[in-house]
Amino acid sequence: MDFLRPAGWEEALAAKAEHPTAVPIAGGTDIMVEINFDHRRPEYLLDLNRITELSEWEVGEESVRLGASVPYTRIMENLRTELPGLALASHTVASPQIRNRGGVGGNLGTASPAGDAHPALLAAGAEVEVESVRGTRLIPIDEFYTGVKRNALAPDELIRAVHIRKADGPQQYSKVGTRNAMVIAVCAFGIALHPETRTVRTGIGSAAPTPVRAEAAEEFLNAALAEGGFWDSGKIITPSIAKQFAELASGACNPIDDVRGTARYRRHAVGIMARRTLGWTWEQYRGSGRTLEGAA
């Protein structure tokens, strides 16, 4: 095993080009577990800790350009207004110690369906900025996850940042685990209201081979809200709409039975979370000038 310590981003890209098998390590919260437990012995470890720009973010007009290594703790503390869904998701990540080290780049790089950030990114709308010596490209989040623990990165590419749309409406995030803290998701659900476009987007974690959006549920809800004039009236969403949205969200799952939970439970729980988080976000939307921050 070789330990590569690039001092800057260009050097890191060059190293990745030269050693496409190199495994990037930033927070280390995934890769070090695999090394400690003898599950993986990469040829090269590519340390990204010294590349300061990866731990920085810029708040733009439309979106936040979030460096791949910005720790979850920073997101919770500093980006609750711009990225409320992701801030809530960040708060559910593992433990305070892990949140101090881990960042969204790690979740995306590992692309585990259980990664906590994914549903929030899917719901908010995001693009992953990846770069290699060949150049930079932006991958829409909907095209990023390609299979179980697989993503759209080329072997020579590194994740530089994520461009996440700033919230234009309330966002929520829920995750089921069998412990009240420090737990891997049995399943998770993210929702974002986008009043500007009068659309709702969602994200589901740990209930399919990849993180997915509940597209049928979104389409149904978008149509129902438009038809009923809900965006203008701010009326309470009728229980039947909420129920159908929840059922369709359940239906978007393609889960498995494993030690953390049954497939049936995952489908069921995603439906409950979909109904509840829709209720919470809609309540926030109905009140004018109410905070966009999550409750946690």
Partner: peptide, 13 residues
Amino acid sequence: VRALPGGLSNTTH
């Protein structure tokens, strides 16, 4: 949420 079932995972209010 710290005082509720689900805790930090924000599953119920």
